[in-house]
Each structure stands twice: as structure tokens, then as C-alpha cells.
């Protein structure tokens, strides 16, 4: 067999995205019988029958070494499942510590009356809106965008802030198959308006509900 030059540490690849050339003929490694190591292994992998290699000592040797590797790999894999589901909860907790501290740039929406100087970031308001929609069984909330109404209210207090005045909520939901679409849209709208008033104190002129998908995997009915 050829020495393993060019296969190990010395091999110079570019970036991951960079194209590296397919194998040239030398690398496919011709065996003394005229076959290439590459194609012998390839056939073995795809399970294609190969009468030649069954009787050829060179091909047999090439396949034996590959099978030996496969055995070790499967032993290694078998040895692994002691921890089939590694516990990632500590890791998730650490990432969440960072996530909660980070400030996402985003819209700031008016809270309360026009003459108040109180605001809420869109992500926080959207959370209340989604949770309100999901109080209905068989409803999952997706995208939720909350915007000011153009031309309404006194000017914005700061750069990212929506002008003071009532807002429009655009909410996408996925609903169980059992819901009537008009009915569920109406009920979502009502719940969202109630929550905007009772939990936030945010004035809302309209709630646009889009049914983004139908969930048909489970029977669920209020």
C-alpha cells in the first residue's frame, strides 16, 4: 500500500467553504490488480456486488483493512451510548444568562396615554400577546409584530420609539384542525385585546390575526 503522504497533518486545505479538488488518479490509489482502492471501498460502502474483488487477493486485503476499521468504529460507537442523551441543562442555563442580559435592538412601544412618557420594548409586549393567544387550546403563536399607526399620535420621543398613540398588532398563529378559522381568529383577537388592556395598558387599534398553519396531529377542542 502507498504511504499515507498527503493524508494527514501536512495536507493543506483551504477554508471550509473553499473547494478542494476531487481525488486525482494517484490518490485513488491503483492496486496491483488494476482496480483502485477508492472504487473497491466505494463499492463496499454502497453494497454493490463485485465478483472480481471476491477472488482478488489485493482487493481482499484492501477490504479486510476497511472492515477492521469498521469493526473498531462500531465498537467505539457501541461504547458510547452510556450517555446517549448528554445532560445539557447546565449549558442551556449558562447561555440563557447571557441571552437575558443582552439587549436586542428593537422597537419601543408607547404604554398608557399620549401624554405619558412610558414605553415597553416590542419583545416584552409580544410575549404577553403570544401568551394570551395560547390560552386557547390548540393555538400556537408564531411571529408577533407590533407597530405604531402612521400619522397618529405626537412624535416619537426617541429614535427607535414608535410615535405615541395606539398600536397595531400583527400575530401569526398555528391552529388545530378542529377550529373554525373565523371563530379562532375572532377569539384570538379578543384574548389579545383583553391582555393588552389588563396586563399591559397598551392601547391597540387593531389585531391582525393570520392563520399561518393548521395543526392536524391531534384532536383538540375547547
Amino acid at each position: 500500500m502507498a504511504v499515507n503522504e498527503g493524508t494527514g497533518p501536512g495536507e493543506g486545505y483551504g477554508a471550509v467553504g473553499g473547494g478542494d479538488a476531487a481525488l486525482d488518479r494517484a490518490e485513488r490509489e491503483p492496486l496491483p490488480c488494476g482496480r483502485e482502492l477508492w472504487s473497491v471501498w466505494e463499492r463496499h460502502e454502497t453494497g454493490e456486488p463485485d465478483p472480481h474483488s471476491d477472488g482478488c487477493p489485493h482487493c481482499t486485503e484492501a477490504l479486510t483493512s476497511l472492515r477492521r476499521l469498521e469493526d473498531v468504529v462500531s465498537t467505539a460507537r457501541d461504547a458510547e451510548p452510556a450517555e446517549a442523551e448528554p445532560d445539557a441543562s447546565a449549558l442551556v442555563g449558562r447561555v440563557m444568562d447571557v441571552v437575558r442580559l443582552e439587549l436586542r435592538p428593537g422597537r419601543t412601544l408607547p404604554l398608557g396615554e399620549d401624554d405619558e412618557d412610558a414605553w415597553i420594548v416590542e419583545a416584552a409586549a409580544a410575549r404577553v400577546v403570544r401568551a394570551a393567544a395560547e390560552t386557547l387550546p390548540g393555538v400556537r403563536a408564531g411571529s408577533c409584530r407590533i407597530e405604531g399607526v402612521p400619522g397618529q399620535g405626537p412624535g416619537a420621543a426617541s429614535g427607535q420609539a414608535v410615535p405615541r398613540g395606539p398600536v397595531v398588532i400583527r400575530l401569526a398563529v398555528e391552529v388545530a384542525l378542529t377550529w373554525g378559522l373565523q371563530e379562532v381568529a375572532d377569539r384570538v383577537r379578543r384574548r389579545v385585546l383583553e391582555a393588552a388592556e389588563s396586563e399591559l395598558g397598551m392601547r391597540v387599534v387593531a389585531v391582525d390575526v393570520t392563520i399561518a398553519d393548521i395543526i392536524d396531529e391531534r384532536e383538540e377542542r375547547p
Binding site: T108, D117, A118, A124, R127, V128
Partner: peptide, 10 residues
């Protein structure tokens, strides 16, 4: 004083 209050999370 002028007081600006912004809710950044719940």
C-alpha cells in the same frame, strides 16, 4: 423632573 420609564422585559 421629567421621568421616562421603559419596560425592557417581563
Amino acid at each position: 423632573p421629567r421621568v421616562t420609564v421603559t419596560v425592557t422585559g417581563l
